[in-house]
Structure formats: C-alpha cells, structure tokens
Design a protein around this nucleic acid. Structure first.
Lengths: 116, 116
DNA sequence: CTGGATCCTTTAAGATACTG
DNA sequence: CAGTATCTTAAAGGATCCAG
C-alpha cells in the first residue's frame, strides 16, 4: 500500500500551508500574534523592518485565509486589533514541530562536520 | 513562562524549513522522492511542467542542504540517481502533519460556509 | 541523458510620501 | 492610527538552445 508510483499525488493541501507560512514576513507576524492580540502599530514596531505596505498585505492575506481576525474600534483615532482565529491557533503545534525538526536537523548536520 | 512579549524570538529555525520546502517545486520533487530513488529524467517527467533548469536548481538546493543524495553512474550515457538522505526521511512526518492540518483547516472553513 | 548558459517575463518586496 | 498610492528594485521562474 506504499507503492502508488504513478498515481497523481494531491499536492494542493501541502501547497496550501505554504500560502499561510510562505514569504518573508508571515512567520514573523504569526509568532508575534501567538503572544496575543496586537494593534497595527504594535506589529509594525515589533516585526522589525517591515513596511506598512507589506504589513497590511500580509495581514489581509492571513485574514482572507482565516488565520487571523481583524477587529476595529471607533475610537479617535481609530484603533484596530489583530488576533489569531481558533483555526489560527491550531497552527501552533505544527510550527513547534517544524521548529523542532529544524533544530534537530541542524544539530545532525553539525555532527557530520565534526566527524570529518 | 509564556509571556516573554518583548524578547527576540529566534525565527531562523522556522525560516530554515521554508528554505527546504518553499518555492514552487520543492514539495513536488520531495513527494516524488518519497517513493524511492529517481533518475533526472524520471523526475523531469513526473514533476509535470518543470523545466530542466528549475529541476537542477532545486535538486542542487536540496543536496546542499543535505536533504537528498546525488549518485552518478559511469554508464554511457551517464545516469544519475537522486534519493532522500536519512535526514531527508525525517521530514516525512512533518509533511504528513502539515497535510493533515491543511485538510482539517479546509474542512472547518467549509463548515463555516454551510452555517450561513 | 544530464545538465549549463542565455535571455526574458512575472512576482515579491522595498522606499517613501500621502490621506481619512 | 491605520492604512493607500506610486514608483523602483530584487528575486523567482519560464523558454529555449546547446554541450559533454
């Protein structure tokens, strides 16, 4: 049951998660939001080096996908809070495992160097 | 111990895995290689739509990182086999979980639509 | 068969000034 | 404060032809 060599494997699910995590800023933004809701300006400060244009673009992407929520308050001036949705929170374990894998992988690569 | 709001979170490990999986073709190539070793031409055929230039580039990337092995045989004409390294194989569970997450996420998103 | 080299198009991202 | 608009640059990817 492990050899379906020539069948078409559906990649779309795998590719989908890259739309959520890919690009230069999404991971950075998401890791900030795992600490709790943030206003636009807070994110702009904390995600160092991002321009407002990129920040709003990435936030819109994530909102469209359903990973984050955008809530506006009619204060003067207006304030906006971004937070992870319930579905966005389910991504956390995956991120943790990705991180663990990366750390383990780098460690192994390091050991190989040492053995030479 | 879950509130280190202003400390710098190390993103490099997370970003690293995107170097392995990111781009248009890496996932596609890797999923093919999980079925076993492949020659260049086999990959070119199976990864539909890829050009030799992109294929060789992605293969080199993956080889440099240490995810795949490249083995040449002095036949005429020369043949080359690509296969996953031991470390490359450890990536499989992560990919499976990413896929599961994506499937679950899409299902939930679908349910929300239905509730309207 | 396995690539390298070249040229071209498309997409991602950066800089900066501006508005409700 | 929370974004838009515009312009520019950098990177990714595609097409095609060629060589050992």
């Amino acid at each position: 049951m492990e050899n379906f060599e020539n069948c078409v494997v559906d990649l779309s699910d795998l590719q989908f998660i890259l739309r959520v995590l890919g690009g230069k800023w999404k991971l950075h933004i998401l890791t900030k939001l795992y600490f709790g809701k943030k206003r636009f300006k807070e994110l702009e400060r904390e995600v160092m080096g991002i321009s407002p244009k990129m920040l709003i673009k990435e936030l819109k992407d994530l909102e469209t996908i359903g990973i984050i929520n955008r809530q506006t308050f009619n204060t003067v001036p207006i304030t906006v809070e971004y937070s992870l949705t319930k579905e966005g929170l389910t991504l956390k374990p995956i991120l943790d495992q990705m991180k663990e894998w990366a750390i383990m992988f780098k460690k192994k690569a390091g050991e190989k160097q040492d053995n030479r």
